[in-house]
Computed example of a mutant assay.
Amino acid sequence: MKVSKHNAEHYKWGDDCDGWHLVQDDNLSIIHERMPADTAEVRHYHEKSRQFFFVLTGTATLEVDGVEYILNSQEGKEVQPLVPHQMLNKSDKDVEFLVTSQPPSKGDRILVLKL
């Protein structure tokens, strides 16, 4: 069966953000996420999970260990385990992106204070 955000398991998070589980197993997670304008996730790190963020549409800001990276459509950035990070949408339009986590990040999230 083909999978897309139209038939994948959907969930809400943060301030009206959306997520769709495209791949969800013990070894790999791929999530399609949407963040409305002027929203942000909570800054955190993962003890085991290595992640890759890839912007599909819009412009996102990914803060990684105190450095902000502007990710435009069709650009991505890897985040290693134990590295604090935060995805932000500082733009005035929605941003959609993929988050690939290996192993899956569920239950592996440690919140950290703002810089």
Rank of each mutant, 00 (worst) to 15 (best):
M1H: 08
M1D: 10
K2F: 05
V3T: 15
S4D: 13
S4L: 08
S4A: 13
K5W: 06
H6I: 00
H6V: 01
N7Y: 08
N7F: 04
N7K: 12
E9D: 11
Y11Q: 09
Y11E: 10
Y11W: 13
K12C: 00
K12V: 08
W13C: 06
W13H: 14
G14R: 07
G14F: 01
G14Y: 04
G14M: 05
D15M: 04
D16L: 00
C17N: 13
G19Y: 09
G19H: 10
G19K: 11
W20T: 04
H21V: 12
H21G: 00
V23Q: 06
V23F: 11
Q24C: 01
Q24R: 14
D26W: 00
N27V: 12
N27M: 10
N27Y: 13
L28H: 06
L28N: 10
S29M: 14
I30H: 02
I31T: 15
E33V: 03
R34I: 02
R34V: 06
R34L: 06
R34F: 00
M35E: 07
M35K: 03
P36S: 05
A37E: 04
A40Y: 01
A40I: 03
E41T: 10
V42H: 09
V42M: 09
R43V: 06
R43M: 15
H46V: 10
H46A: 05
H46G: 07
E47F: 00
E47Y: 02
S49E: 09
S49W: 04
S49A: 15
S49H: 06
R50F: 04
R50C: 00
F52L: 14
F52M: 10
F52N: 09
F54P: 05
F54S: 12
F54C: 11
V55E: 11
T57C: 04
T57L: 05
T59V: 15
A60P: 01
A60M: 14
T61Y: 01
T61S: 11
L62F: 08
L62V: 14
E63Q: 14
E63Y: 03
V64Q: 09
D65E: 13
D65V: 03
D65L: 02
D65S: 13
G66I: 10
E68F: 02
E68I: 04
Y69C: 00
I70C: 05
I70M: 11
I70W: 02
L71A: 08
L71M: 07
N72K: 15
N72V: 02
N72Q: 14
S73L: 02
S73G: 09
Q74R: 14
K77D: 01
V79T: 12
P81Y: 09
P81V: 07
V83E: 06
H85M: 05
Q86K: 14
Q86P: 01
M87V: 15
M87T: 14
M87R: 09
L88H: 03
K90V: 01
S91W: 04
S91E: 11
D92A: 01
D92E: 10
K93Q: 14
V95Q: 05
V95D: 04
E96G: 02
F97H: 06
F97C: 02
V99R: 07
T100N: 00
T100M: 13
S101V: 06
Q102G: 11
P103D: 03
P104N: 11
K106Y: 03
G107Y: 11
D108K: 09
D108L: 05
R109A: 08
I110C: 04
L111K: 15
